[in-house]
Each structure stands twice: as C-alpha cells, then as structure tokens.
Amino acid sequence: MNRILEEKIVKVFLFITAITAVFSVLLIGVFVFMEGMPIFLKYGITDVLFGPVWNPSSGVYGIWPMIVGTIYVTLIAILIGAPMGLGVAVYLVEIANKRIAKLIVPAVELLAGIPSVVYGLFGMFAVRSIIAELERGPLADYLPSNYQTGYSVLTAGIILAIMILPTIINISLDALKAVPREYKEGSLALGVSHWQTIYKVLVPAAKSGIITAIILGVGRALGETMAVIMVIGNTPLVPVLDWTGLFAPARSLTANIALEMGYAGPEHQQALFATGIVLFVFIIVLNSLTTLLVRRKGRK
C-alpha cells in the first residue's frame, strides 16, 4: 500500500513540475503587460508606437525609432543569414562527404554555443573596424560624419547573420533530410542533373521546413540583445531610408530595455516595459506564423 501512496504523491509532484512552464509563460505575459500598459494608456497607443522621439528625461516616449531599428537589423541579418544557412544545409545534405560534414556540423554547434557578449566583442572590433574603414574611406563623401563610426545597423546585421546561422542550418537540414528519397531518385532517373534536382525538387519539397527555419531565425535576431547593443551605436533615431541608412547608428527594442533599465525612474521603467510589450507582440506574431505553417503542412 505504501508503494501505491508513493505512486500517487509522485504523480501529483510531476504534474506540478509539468505545469510550471504554463505558469511561467502566463506570469511573464501578465507582468510585462501589467507594467507596460500604463504608458500606452497615458500617452496613447499610436503616439507611443509611432512617436519618432525617445527622450525619457523630458517624458517623451516614442518607440518608433527602435521598431525601425529592430526591423532593419533583422532584415539585414535574414538577407545574409538565410541564403547562407540554406546553402550550408543543402551542402551538408547533398554534397559534402562525411569527413567535411564531420568538420562543419560541430562547427555549427559551437557557433550556437558562443555567448552573445563574445559575438558583441568580436563585432565591436573585428567587424566594426572593417565597416568604419569603408565609411571613412570610399564612402566618406556620401555619409554624414555621425555615420562614420563603424557602429551601424549593417554591423549589427552582419553579427546577427552569423548568430542565426546555426538555427537556420539545423532546422533546414532536418527539413531537407525529411524529403523522401523517391523524390530525388525519381528526378535523377529522368536524367535531370543533381543541381537541378536540388533546386527544383528537393528545396521546394522542404519548403515549409525551410520557412520555419527562417522564421525562427527572425525570432532569434529580433530577440538578441547584447551583441546588438555592442555594435549598433544605440542612437534612438530613425535611420535614413536610403542606402546610407545601412551605415546609420540606430537602436533596437532589446537594446533600449537593456541600456536604460539600470537607471530608469518609475515612468521611464514603464516605458521600457512597453518596449518589451512590442517585442513580445512581434514574437507572438512570429510564433503564430510558425504554428499556422506547421498546421497547414500537417493537413496536406
């Protein structure tokens, strides 16, 4: 009878551990929204979201520059990281021999393990100096002087592109591996070349997995904080919307929170939580996209 009682107690305990995740998500949502909503209510949702000026010391809380900054760096990161990651995944699945794959796979794993501050430090020196030389050299005539520091959305985008590589490679790798062999064999048997088979049959067949990989990569880039802070320049201004904007220092939503939380007064803190809400909503939209995609694939 003792064992039966133990069994029951254990089951209750395990259930509690299992719902911890549910409670955590709820608490996180509740607290971030509870702390951030007052700002939206006080200053109006549109004024906070689309306000172009962020000046907490005079009580102006426009998040727009950070929204643009976040979207900008994320776009750059994806434009570089997605094709590259997909390319590496295709290479690993279809072309690389075992020895080379054994070199690349752990390398990708390690890339995923490097702390973001280390990426930031690397970006601050190795990448920024290259960008700065570009800005001060051949491009000096086209760029305003505050765009010549090397701290820019481009620098941040490049670092983020490297950081999201593992996510994109690993998930599209799984998607490509899951494509039935018959597809490939059927295509090759028709006398279609290996490369044509890859981009006409294999990649389209793995499409939904690859899109999931890219969405998760976007999520990773959106949410990254430290590496971005260390290379983006952190100016809360909307970058110029032409090519020179690539070299503009800017600020991301995440950086906004991390930079100012340490010394923020009560209302300022609420504004930073409001920044968190915007970030949260971005992530929720992305997650729903992924869920939708997975469901559609399931229905097929």
């Binding site: 608490l27 996180i28 971030v32 998760l216 929170i257 939380m261 970030l279 992530i283 992305l286």
Partner: peptide
C-alpha cells in the same frame, strides 16, 4: 521563443 531581455523584464 521568448527573447532573453523579456525574461529579464519579467
């Protein structure tokens, strides 16, 4: 999927 800075806020 939640960004670490949001964990920080929480």
């Amino acid at each position: 999927g939640i960004p670490s800075i949001v964990f920080g806020l929480f």
